[in-house]
Design a binder for these strands. Structure first.
Lengths: 189, 189
DNA sequence: TGGAACTGGGGACATTTGTCCTTTTTTACT
DNA sequence: AGTAAAAAAGGACAAATGTCCCCAGTTCCA
């Protein structure tokens, strides 16, 4: 649930320390809850997380949110939109304070055209995300909330993630009321 | 819901008509319901659909199935597993009679290493699948079955897809009983 | 310090969905 | 055509989930 990608982090660090590129790469700080990508709007930059945790979520028209994933060190944002030349798929906001590298779409496209290493990294990352996203979709559709919550709590503990109840509910795609009920169910064993 | 990819189809056709490659590419026929990839097992070949429709589905331990997507002309299968060097993510079976090109993992890897065009095609395809899969996950979690069914019926009609009720239920991640109820609800308007 | 306003949790009830089993419809064979 | 077997649909009840609202605890301000 909290994805990270060390290879990407090394990649962007190398790029950043290369004199030919350093001036095209910015480092930005974001405060907790700052939303830096908005569903449906144009994407101006590609981001790679240097430090901290972001969440990536859909806001549906009925007012409910669904958290797709939590992204940590080395995760890239905006690449899907750049590849498909489309508006932003979902919202992205800072869960902790965040430090990100940002590069322009143009540079990203140039790199994609000539750098096989970046292509490989992207393919691996997208393939991994497909695996996560699709297995989770299947699991959440076919099992009860209790199962989903059990898995979520396990992952949260393993990864030492601090999560608000709102975020947990949005990750499971259920209401707060249902989450509270399920949590209560757990304390009974 | 029924994905196709003409660019991939042209790509594999060109490859197939190239004397250097033609003997490494096979064309196979599959009968309705034949399952040619199995969740958890090793993937031996990469497939590209020449003609017909396949379904790609998870079988969960509780005996339920979840259909991830329907794949038509030009769609590729097994590429995620090749990229991540992992066992097969989900089952794939023929919905109609099927004609597929198949190539070895080895050739696929060689091509990925040297052919930028293939890399681009793969990136685009994976990005598009992420968009579909994740928007659908969100929608299905946050809306009622009726909404999901409405969308499904619409897509089915638009794409002239013939679907069994079992497949419709598995696509929505619900039981047959619930599907029947929802369908009845529709006829009332 | 009193009280208004906000927040999180949970009760009560409605709705949705699943399970189990019976009924109805279809198929297949003689 | 008539009947047995198989498949599909649906009724009845149980379980899960959502909605609405109230209550207790906290915060914040005058």
């Amino acid at each position: 649930m909290l994805r990270t990608n060390n290879e990407f982090l090394s990649y962007i660090k190398e790029l950043y320390s290369d004199d030919a590129y350093t001036r095209y790469i910015k480092v930005q700080q974001l405060t907790v809850d700052a939303q830096f990508l908005t569903q449906g709007e144009r994407v101006h930059q590609i981001y790679i997380i240097k430090e901290g945790i972001a969440k990536c979520f859909f806001s549906e028209e009925n007012g409910k949110d669904y958290i797709l994933e939590f992204l940590g060190k080395g995760e890239i944002l905006g690449e899907i939109e750049a590849i498909r030349e489309m508006p932003c798929l979902c919202n992205v906001a800072a869960v902790t304070t965040l430090e990100v590298y940002s590069i322009s779409i143009k540079l990203f496209n140039d790199l994609m055209d000539k750098d096989m290493r970046l292509n490989k990294l992207l393919l691996k990352e997208l393939a991994e995300r497909m695996v996560n996203t699709s297995s989770r979709a299947s699991f959440q559709q076919l099992y009860t909330v209790e199962h989903g919550l059990a898995k979520l709590l396990e992952l949260r503990d393993k990864q030492q993630l601090q999560l608000s109840k709102e975020d947990m509910a949005a990750y499971l795609g259920i209401t707060l009321r249902s989450l509270n009920r399920a949590l209560k169910g757990f304390s009974h064993h």
